[in-house]
Design a protein around this nucleic acid. Structure first.
Length: 489
RNA sequence: GGACCAGUGGUGUAGCGAUUAACAUGUCUCCCUGUCACGGAGAAGAUCGCGGGUUUAAGUCCCGUCUGGUCCGCCA
């Protein structure tokens, strides 16, 4: 190329960050100058992949007869679940819209309307604390369909995933995907979104150790062990103390650690454990020299599982057990319908109040609701919950009963869900649905563990936008219009 | 609401009790060059987030605070 003339189209100042794929600018700086950060090819690739995923969803769902429908952004506040973002109404003094946490009720109403197959690339909003994989303002590939049972839904949806993985990353996903029950995921992997790329399992050892004259073993309802192979030598006293300390997060007093050396168990607390018990532990856990055994004991099943589950993933990373460049997809199925809120002690839906219980469990609905399992399913990829859904309740009576169990008064139900319950009167087909987290799928396929990387203009952990400065105070006139006054804190 | 980690030139890091506060990159000037992450010579640029304390002496230790991140709670 021979240039005859050079014209400066626009002058550029020195950029506050280095525009290069290998930039190591702090995220804070990158977010402040996001428009410069997005000049980097690596960042553009995330957005390109994201767009491809959306395109695939359109293609696959269109081809299978799904109709894209938009549902309102200004909608009704829902009493359960995440905190709503509220939008004051100027016309209706003192009243508020809410931004949707999900188009849940609308998509079910579309089933009643007879659309049979719906989808939407849906913006959702939840006013809860943020995480590396959680933004307050996010996108779901939201799907609902009529006249399908769980197996048909899963088959249809894993077809979509296969299509996306092939088109976006040229990865062949083998179908059908594995189905794992919630209880297995929890007790074996210590997570309801197990990372199945590596083996390293939790073991229930309560039956083996309950005879030991050691209070945690004797009295705790659950005693679980995680074996870290060939790690006893490397685990210093300080490292164990650190782990123990971390267990407080899961409301456990600490961790009990044993080692194996010279073919025998070793550890200061073993004086409380008979040799015969030690031997049967050695045998049933198939312990080898230099193994590190971490034991958690307690009465709350989920605490014990999550505690050891966090150690499981931590050691897997540390020891390089995670297979690189693999995508492990599975369905987690058979979830409990309810759970007890730790904070309030009240019963809440584990999924949402529209989830259909298994027919054979309906008999426990009143007497022992925690025994009721639901026809819900999560898609888990490499330890991420990439989506979830359920078969829905489609008869008015069951839906009303669920609301009752959740503690909504008749008046609450009428005001918050009246329109929804009413609709059930007019003939509701059996229906089911799912929502895939577009942001999470983009992370997984893009190969990043930070959700902000795949969102053009994300919020930081404090839920503000370092670039625009949102949220901000507004003019007093705007507040006046809305009849709102700000109370000082 | 809680725990932990970090905050040093424009950018990213090192320094962890007494150094002219180091390095890389960027910026500016000059030299060289058929470019493609050239190369060479030189220059400017940080009082180490903020406040207080300990000490003869503090980026370096302690306390508080702010900001950012990771996690727990929370996320139907």
């Amino acid at each position: 190329v021979v240039a005859f003339k050079i014209i400066v189209i626009n002058k550029a100042e020195t950029t506050p960050l280095i525009i290069d794929d290998n930039t190591d600018a702090l995220e804070d700086t990158r977010l402040k100058y996001r428009y410069l950060d997005l000049r980097r090819p690596a960042m553009q690739n995330y957005l390109i992949k994201r767009a491809k995923i959306v395109k695939c969803a359109h293609e696959y769902l269109d081809d299978n007869g799904y109709i894209e429908v938009e549902t309102p952004i200004l909608t009704l506040s829902t009493p359960e679940g995440a905190r709503d973002y509220l939008v004051p109404s100027r016309i209706h003094h003192g009243k508020f819209y809410a931004l949707p946490q999900s188009p849940q009720m609308f998509k079910q109403l579309l089933m009643i309307a007879g659309l049979e197959r719906y989808y939407q690339i849906a913006r959702c909003f939840r006013d809860e604390d943020l995480r590396a994989d959680r933004q307050p303002d996010f996108t779901q590939i939201d799907i609902e369909m009529s006249f399908m049972d769980q197996e048909q839904v899963l088959t249809m949806m894993e077809g979509l995933l296969k299509y996306i993985f092939k088109k976006v990353n040229n990865v062949d996903v083998e179908l059908p995907l594995r189905r794992m029950e919630y209880l297995e995921a929890m007790s074996k992997y210590g997570s309801d979104k197990p990372d199945t790329r590596y083996e390293l399992f939790l073991h229930e050892i309560k039956p083996i150790v309950e005879k030991a004259d050691f209070k945690p073993f004797r009295d705790a309802k659950y005693v679980k062990a995680l074996i870290i192979p060939h790690h006893a030598e490397k685990a210093s006293r300080k490292a164990i103390d650190d782990i123990s300390n971390e267990m407080k997060k899961y409301s456990l007093p600490g961790i009990i650690a044993f080692k194996v050396s010279n073919g025998k168990m070793d550890g200061s607390l073993l004086k409380y454990v008979d040799e015969s018990i030690q031997e049967s532990l050695m045998k049933s856990l198939n312990l080898q020299n230099d193994d590190l055994i971490l034991v958690a004991a307690g009465d709350v099943f989920s605490d014990i599982c999550f505690a050891l589950g966090s150690l499981r993933s931590r050691f897997a990373k540390e020891l390089g057990l995670v297979k690189p460049n693999t995508y492990d997809l599975l369905w987690v199925v058979h979830w409990p319908l309810f759970e007890i809120s730790k904070e309030t002690g009240k019963i809440t839906s584990s999924h949402h109040p529209f989830t259909r219980p298994y027919d054979e469990d309906l008999k426990y609905l009143e007497s022992d609701p925690l025994k009721v399992f639901s026809q819900a399913y999560d898609i888990v990829i490499n330890g991420y919950e990439a989506g979830g859904g359920s078969l829905r309740i489609y008869d008015q009576a069951t839906q009303k009963e669920i609301f009752k169990i959740l503690g909504f008064s008749d008046e609450d139900v009428k005001r918050k869900f009246g329109f929804f319950i009413d609709a059930f009167k007019y003939g509701t087909p059996p229906h089911a649905g799912i929502a895939f987290g577009l942001d999470r799928l983009s992370m997984i396929l893009g190969g990043t563990d930070n959700i902000r990387d795949v969102i053009a203009f994300p919020k930081n952990l404090a839920a503000s936008c370092p670039m625009s400065g949102a949220p901000e105070i507004v003019d007093p006139e705007q507040l006046d219009d809305l009849g709102i006054a700000i109370k000082s804190k």
